[in-house]
Design a protein around this nucleic acid. Structure first.
Lengths: 327, 327
DNA sequence: GTGAAAGCGCTAACAT
DNA sequence: ATGTTAGCGCTTTCAC
């Protein structure tokens, strides 16, 4: 079995206190005893049990980040940047992936919040805020990121897509499109919902009827959207707006596979954190997400929550911007 | 503060043993006491401290996965698939990102292996195997994935790129290229090294001198490669092979930005798990990584290691394949 | 049907 | 300069 601190103490002929103090440099130990202890540690291949330490001290220096879809580069970027921010305060980041599954999310919350991490960043796929509130211990430091709820009482950091998507659809209309398809994401996700509303608002404001057969619902992840493109085209769409990047990539792929030239045969509105990947795929509308700013703010916010757990919930909203890319 | 099991016991007027048994359904409790306990749990918003439970029982049902670059979709795909596999055995996955930094990796190893997880999957960025061996407790269930070491004594699951890259470069040569640039990754990474060797071997076998000014070294992550493209072109390269997908994306972006048509002005050899993304970027050579197979095997292997920690180290090597994509 | 108490591996007063 | 020991929150044997 794995050696414990008392094994080391026994082996070195000292007390566990001394061993502990050697490990943590937390009080003076003479060179000779220190050496004995170090030797015993090496001899027994000892390393302290972090769980026991955490249990005792309550200090973990660990943040949890629960994401819905780790294979979406947008969330990957958030993770990377959050990690950067908190590592400067010598915190480490632990990530779990839920695949947009609420039960997975609840399981992760339970594992992480019950003594494992000091704080939690959460891009939630929950249906209702109440579910979350129930799952997370009172006063546990949490910040919601990317997605929130109308009745949310946690800190929340989000990106509003309304005006950018609205503008994107308006541009399509201005370019003469009247049959504009929409591929929506999971409607319990605040961002997905907001984007769909923006699409509808743009149409309505231009007196174009919102037709339900032109609106398809994907699962906000890869592989759910391509099936809809054909249908939308059959319905006569000359333009398609897509809720998020993962589904947009499906659509783009579909188009290329079928020889449909983007920006010519079809007008596309898509979204991501960085237009590099889309730059060369054809001319299209693009909703740019300020993901790094969001991640930085989230990292700083969770650190602040830990220091000051009862500060009033902030509700920071970043703005996505509409751009046109390609050539 | 957060309620503990003895708070609940006190509140319900029972012993901690009873509370524990109610929570875990581990011995009979009369309906009336059970109800009292449940009520107290609700009243105090109690949830058990997982760390304490782990400390006591040693059971965690948690696997750690340390990746070097979470924003690389290849690793994201591995994560997602590993999670799928182990969740079927009701294990959860915890991920940390090292950004190709060895110290980050060592820190993560320490956090995870000292009592937090039952097993570790590791795509290592360590320079030497000895470093790893030192950091990981003896007999801790580990499987190395994607990258390994010549002197590795852990289970290791990798993808050989030698023949695919070799073939890709040979095809370039067959198409008449003689000045073929190479953008290499971090050379302490086994895969990056293997690919560079394959490139050199292909040239040598065709009596084309390996010229060091045509070989550039990136960091295997985004944003390190684009700077080299101009240089390689100035040196007269008509073809470029790129070690991994993250850097290839830089190159592709660079080309499009500068009006260099892929498959016409320049020949490219790149690599990833899935050619979808590259499909429409022009005609190019492509090394396809069987990432999902790799991930599945890794998930199964770590589960087996946990059941049987002392089974002899396996060394499974998958084969990447060369394909031509685009049109 | 329930309780008392030991102990998981560690840290940190309190001693000396 | 170092040792003794209580206790972090939980599970589980043993006892009743």
């Amino acid at each position: 079995m794995k050696a414990t601190i008392s094994d080391v103490a026994k082996h070195a002929g000292v007390s566990t206190a001394t061993v502990s103090h050697v490990i943590n440099n937390t009080r003076f130990v003479s060179d000779s005893t220190r050496k004995k202890v170090m030797d015993s540690i090496a001899a027994l291949d000892y390393s302290p049990n972090e769980m026991a330490r955490i249990l005792k001290t309550g200090k973990k220096n660990l943040i949890g980040f629960i994401v819905p879809d780790i294979s979406n580069e947008y969330f990957a970027a958030l993770i990377e940047e959050v990690e950067r921010v908190i590592s400067r305060k010598s915190y480490k980041l632990i990530v779990t992936n839920t695949r947009e599954n609420e039960q997975n999310e609840l399981d992760s919350i339970k594992t992480l919040t019950s003594g494992m991490v000091d704080g939690l960043i959460l891009a939630s796929t929950a249906r209702k805020f109440a579910t979350l509130q129930e799952a997370i211990p009172d006063d546990f430091p949490v910040v919601l990121v990317d997605r929130t709820f109308p009745d949310c009482t946690f800190h929340s950091l989000t990106i509003s897509n309304h005006s950018a998507v609205y503008q994107g659809v308006r541009e399509m209309i201005d370019r003469g499109h009247t049959k504009i398809g929409y591929i929506a994401g999971l409607q319990h996700i605040s961002t997905a919902n907001e984007r769909l509303q923006a699409y509808k608002a743009a149409l309505t404001d231009c007196n174009i009827p919102v037709r339900s057969e032109l609106i398809c619902f994907g699962d906000s992840m890869h592989n759910s959207a391509s099936a809809y493109v054909g249908t939308l085209l059959e319905h006569g769409c000359s333009a398609i707006a897509i809720s998020n990047n993962a589904m947009a990539e499906d659509v783009i792929y579909y188009c290329h596979k079928h020889g449909i030239v983007i920006g010519k045969d079809i007008d596309l509105l898509t979204s991501n954190l960085d237009d590099r990947r889309y730059y060369y795929l054809g001319k299209m509308g693009y909703v740019r997400q300020p993901a790094l700013e969001l991640a930085r703010a989230a990292g700083e916010q969770i650190m602040e929550c830990i220091v000051n757990p009862s500060s009033p919930a902030k509700d920071k909203i970043f703005q996505a911007s509409y751009v046109e890319i390609g050539n």
